[in-house]
Computed example of a mutant assay.
Amino acid sequence: MNAFTGQTFQMHQIINIKEVIQFTSISRAKLYEMINVNSKYYDPTFPQPIRLSESRIGWSALEVNQWIEAKLEQRLE
């Protein structure tokens, strides 16, 4: 089950990179560039990953959703 079920949003869910890619339509490489402070494509508004274990990271579904909502609002300006 993913974080977005129809119109329902589960606020406290951690999602993996495949789900972030699916929800944002951003490639894995571009996503890592967007969170890399040293990249020219760095986006400080994009949610930073959460370290879940030594070898695993995830993203807050809520934060990713908020980022998408902000992008939609910018489109209307």
Results as ranks from 00 to 15, higher is better:
I50T: 10
D43Y: 07
T24D: 01
V37W: 01
D43M: 09
S55K: 15
I15K: 08
I57S: 07
I68W: 05
M34R: 10
D43I: 04
E63F: 00
I21K: 09
E63Q: 07
T24G: 01
E69C: 11
N16L: 12
F23R: 12
H12M: 05
Q13K: 14
A61S: 15
S55P: 00
P47Q: 02
I15L: 09
K30Q: 12
I50D: 01
V20R: 03
N38K: 14
E69N: 12
L52C: 14
V64M: 00
N65L: 00
I14K: 04
A61K: 08
E33Y: 09
S53K: 10
W59N: 03
R28F: 10
N16H: 13
M34E: 01
S53H: 05
I68A: 03
I50V: 08
N65I: 02
Y41G: 01
R28E: 15
E19S: 13
R28L: 10
R51I: 15
A29I: 05
E63W: 00
M11W: 03
M11S: 10
Q13V: 12
A29F: 05
S55Y: 09
I57W: 07
N65M: 07
Q22E: 14
N36Y: 04
N16D: 15
I35W: 08
N38E: 11
W59A: 01
E54T: 05
E54I: 03
K18Q: 07
Y41C: 02
K30H: 15
Y42M: 11
T45S: 15
Q10T: 12
P47L: 05
Q13C: 04
G6D: 04
I35K: 04
I21Y: 02
T45C: 10
I17F: 08
L62Y: 12
Y42A: 05
P44M: 03
I14H: 04
T8P: 00
M11K: 11
I17C: 09
P44C: 04
S27I: 05
E69I: 14
F46Y: 08
R28Q: 15
Q66C: 02
M11Y: 06
F46E: 07
P49W: 13
D43C: 10
M11N: 09
F9W: 10
L31M: 15
T24N: 07
